[in-house]
């Protein structure tokens, strides 16, 4: 059982900074990467705000952890699914998000985008094929 590779999906539905969930979820993702499971991240509802670019937390005196998402590729976390309807409902588009990439070791280390915008229907399909769904 412990040798088995499971599909882990981290579901992010909360915006950063108003509560600690986004930061502490990211900490689990980083630690979990060492376990060599099949990892994906889902961003829907207010969770899409975790990936926006231009976050500046100086005036609230809290650490800006948004640059950490750029490091995920180095941890082999390369599948970040963002729900299109959630973006639209909030007046956002893909251009409002950070451009995140990973190097594809199966394709001559070519740089590829990690974020994939999916429809609500596709998001439901992704959720339905997981072994473990972590939400915080």
């Amino acid at each position: 059982m412990s040798d088995e590779v499971k599909k882990f999906l981290y579901v992010n539905r909360k915006a950063p900074y108003g509560s600690i969930y986004a930061l502490e979820s990211l900490e689990v993702v980083l630690i979990g990467a060492a376990f060599e499971q099949e990892v994906s991240l889902a961003f829907l509802d207010d969770g899409v705000f975790q990936l926006t670019k231009g976050q500046d937390t100086k005036e609230i005196g809290v650490k800006n952890f948004s640059p950490t998402y750029r490091a995920l590729g180095d941890y082999d976390v390369t599948k970040l699914y963002v729900e299109e309807e959630s973006l639209k409902e909030r007046g956002l588009g893909i251009d409002d998000l950070q451009y995140l990439t990973y190097e594809d070791e199966d394709d001559d280390y070519k740089e590829k985008p990690s974020i994939k915008v999916v429809s609500r229907k596709e998001m439901a399909d992704i959720m339905a094929e997981q072994d473990i769904i972590l939400s915080f």
């Binding site: 579901v11 539905r13 969930y21 959720m127 997981q130 072994d131 473990i132 769904i133 939400s135 915080f136």
Partner: peptide, 8 residues
């Protein structure tokens, strides 16, 4: 059920 999903 094969999995649980908490909508937090």
């Amino acid at each position: 059920n094969e999995r649980t999903q908490s909508w937090l």
